[in-house]
Write a protein that binds this DNA or RNA. Structure first.
Lengths: 127, 127
DNA sequence: CGGAATCCTGCCGGATACTG
DNA sequence: CAGTATCCGGCAGGATTCCG
C-alpha cells in the first residue's frame, strides 16, 4: 500500500481544504480577472484605461469582472465627481494578499511551459 | 502618482507572468480537476475508485479530466493486464509540484471565507 | 466617460446508452 | 471495469446598442 501523501506533507483534507481551493479558483476564474488584477497592481486605473490596457475586453465583460472583484473586496471603486464622471479602480490591501498565489502560479506556469517545450522537442527529435 | 507595486515586490510583468498564470489556471480549471488531484494525493486510485470518491462526477467528465491531467503530466495512467482490465491513476512527481500553489489557494480560500462571514455579520448586526 | 440592456454564440458539463 | 458516443441544457462571454 503506497501512500504518497504529497511529498511528506499532509494530503489535501477533502472537506474544507478542497472547498477553499475551489473558492479561490472561482474568484480568480473568468477570462480577464487575472489580467485586470495584474494591471491594477501597477497602480490605480480608470475604466477607460483598463479598456485600453487589457486589450480585447469589451465594456460588458470589464464591467462584470470589475464588479465581481469588488464584491470580493479585491479592488475598490471610487467615483470622482468630475465633469463627465470618472471612476477609479484600485487594488485593495486585501487584493494584494493574492500576491503569493499569483506568484506561485506564475512561477509554476513558466516552469511548465519550459517542460512542455522540452517534451515536444524530445518527441519530435526521436519520432 | 501612487504606485502600489504590490506591497514592495515587483508588479506582475504583463507579457510573460500573466500568460504563465493563465496557463496554470487553465490546467487547474474544470469543475473536477482539483478534487481529482486531491483524491490522488492520498494514493493511487482506479477509475471506479475515483467515480465513488469524487461523488457527483460522471464517467465522461472523469475520463476527460483525467486525460487532460495526464496530458499535462500531472498524473500517470497505468493499465494493469488483469482480467476485466484495471487502470491505475497516480499523481506524478511533477503533479506534486502543484502542492505549493494548492496550499496557498487553500490557505487564502479559508481566510477569505472567514472574512466574508465577518463582513456579513457586521452588515447584519449594524443594519 | 462609465456603464446597463439586449441578443447571440460556443463550449462546458450532465444524463444516458453503448462497447470491449 | 473502464471508458466512448450522443444528445441536450445552461451559462460564460462577445458584439452591438443605448443611457446619464
Amino acid at each position: 500500500m503506497k501512500k504518497k501523501v504529497f511529498i511528506d506533507q499532509k494530503p489535501l483534507q477533502c472537506p474544507s481544504q478542497l472547498r477553499a481551493i475551489h473558492d479561490t479558483m472561482d474568484i480568480l476564474s473568468g477570462k480577464w480577472k487575472i489580467t485586470i488584477i495584474g494591471c491594477l497592481s501597477f497602480g490605480d486605473k480608470r475604466f477607460m484605461d483598463l479598456m485600453r490596457e487589457v486589450k480585447g475586453i469589451g465594456s460588458k465583460m470589464l464591467s462584470k469582472e470589475l464588479q465581481e472583484l469588488e464584491i470580493n473586496g479585491l479592488i475598490s471603486r471610487t467615483v470622482q465627481p468630475t465633469k463627465p464622471v470618472t471612476v477609479e479602480y484600485a487594488l485593495t490591501t486585501y487584493g494584494e494578499t493574492l500576491r503569493p498565489i499569483l506568484w506561485e502560479m506564475a512561477d509554476w506556469g513558466q516552469h511548465h511551459r519550459i517542460k512542455v517545450k522540452a517534451t515536444f522537442s524530445g518527441e519530435v527529435g526521436s519520432g
